[in-house]
Amino acid sequence: MSRVLAAAPSDPVAVPERVRVLAGDDDVTPVWRNELGGLTFRLSAGPGGERPGAERYVKWVPAGTPELDLDAEAERLAWAGRYTPVPHVLDRGTDGAGAWLLTEGIPGRSAVDPRWLAHPGTAARAIGAGLRAMHDALPVDDCPFSWGVADRVSRLSPAARARVGDVPAVDRLVVCHGDPCAPNTLLDDDGRWTAHVDLDALGVADRWADLAVASYSLEWNYGDGHEPAFFEGYGIAPDAGRIAFYRRLWDLG
């Protein structure tokens, strides 16, 4: 999987017609956009609405964007939701313009919410603790999805395969998040993790596939110096060799 950059939109966003239909009378707010064209909108009812205070979220991707597989994410959310806090799927589908995934709101703010950008050490520790809780909760033997290193390496070009290097021995197989970057952990107001989002790549792999990338993303979002808090939150010492391998694989994928 390649690294996909995302951010809250800073310029006006055209709301797709399907999103307007799903919203009904709810307010529609764009909250996230990635470089492949995928958008996330918050649907919120006001005090006079049928669902006062309730929030839903809809992901929408334009037609012909195979890198963003919302069906895959819906399947993984349904499975993971039996064991760990993740969004509940309300609807999914496709039309000529694109694909959508509608989920219930879930408590917490993204770890890159301005509240946590101002307190990166707390956020980094919570991201580590949340990832450890997910790895411990999801049952490897029952997981129908794989994020295995052999498959990921096999999809590289010959040149990239040579650059990524030898695959390290497995430390511990877990059900990995698959995109464990900082924005995909939610935190409560006390700085504790509450849930995970964006699970379209979830699958069984060595835990260092997640650990290497989650710690990598701290620099992108918070700047240098926060990896110790992350590894403390997870409860493990950094493994420099495995970290280097899985970061190269992420960058080259």
Rank of each mutant, 00 (worst) to 15 (best):
G48K: 09
G49C: 13
G49E: 06
R51K: 15
P52A: 13
E55K: 13
E55D: 15
R56C: 09
R56A: 10
R56M: 08
R56W: 10
Y57G: 00
V58Y: 01
V58K: 02
K59C: 08
K59R: 11
K59S: 05
W60M: 06
P62W: 12
P62S: 09
T65A: 12
T65D: 10
P66A: 12
E67M: 15
L68Y: 14
L68H: 15
D69C: 15
A72M: 12
A74Y: 00
A74D: 03
A74I: 02
E75S: 15
R76N: 05
R76I: 00
L77N: 00
L77K: 00
A78Q: 14
W79H: 09
W79R: 06
A80D: 09
G81L: 03
R82D: 08
R82Q: 14
Y83N: 02
T84R: 07
T84S: 11
V86N: 00
V86P: 01
P87T: 04
V89H: 00
R92P: 05
R92L: 05
R92C: 03
G93W: 07
G93Y: 06
T94E: 13
D95N: 12
G96P: 04
G96M: 06
A97T: 13
G98V: 08
G98N: 01
G98E: 02
A99Y: 10
W100D: 01
L101T: 02
T103E: 04
T103S: 05
G105W: 09
I106D: 07
I106L: 06
I106Y: 08
P107N: 07
P107I: 04
G108I: 00
G108S: 07
R109V: 14
A111N: 09
A111S: 13
V112C: 05
V112E: 04
V112A: 05
P114W: 07
L117W: 11
L117M: 14
G121E: 13
G121V: 04
T122A: 14
A124Q: 02
R125C: 08
A126V: 10
A126Q: 01
